[in-house]
């Protein structure tokens, strides 16, 4: 069980990384408009769509 003396500090390090990346993303406007992102998946690029359709057809 002595490994826990290593694992807990490791968990703290991971937490610090998580916090850093979260704050980074807030500062870089990643959370500016949360409504929009939910819909992005519904608006695939049109050109890509038609190419895929063509590929499927051929």
């Amino acid at each position: 069980m002595e490994v826990i003396f290593v694992l807990i500090p490791v968990s703290l390090a991971i937490i610090l990384m998580a916090l850093w990346s979260f704050i980074w993303s807030v500062r870089n406007d990643q959370f500016e408009d949360l409504d929009k992102e939910a819909y992005r998946i519904l608006f695939d690029d049109k050109d890509q769509d038609s190419e895929e359709v063509k590929q499927e057809q051929s």
């Binding site: 500016e32 929009k36 819909y39 992005r40």
Partner: peptide, 27 residues
């Protein structure tokens, strides 16, 4: 009025030359 509008604008503008970044905000 909706997410679709803002994505439409974003897509159109991103495709134009010299654009570094486009951000739309619905709220």
């Amino acid at each position: 009025r909706c997410a679709a509008c803002s994505l439409k604008i974003e897509k159109q503008l991103s495709a134009m030359p010299d654009v570094e970044r486009v951000a739309t905000n619905l709220s």
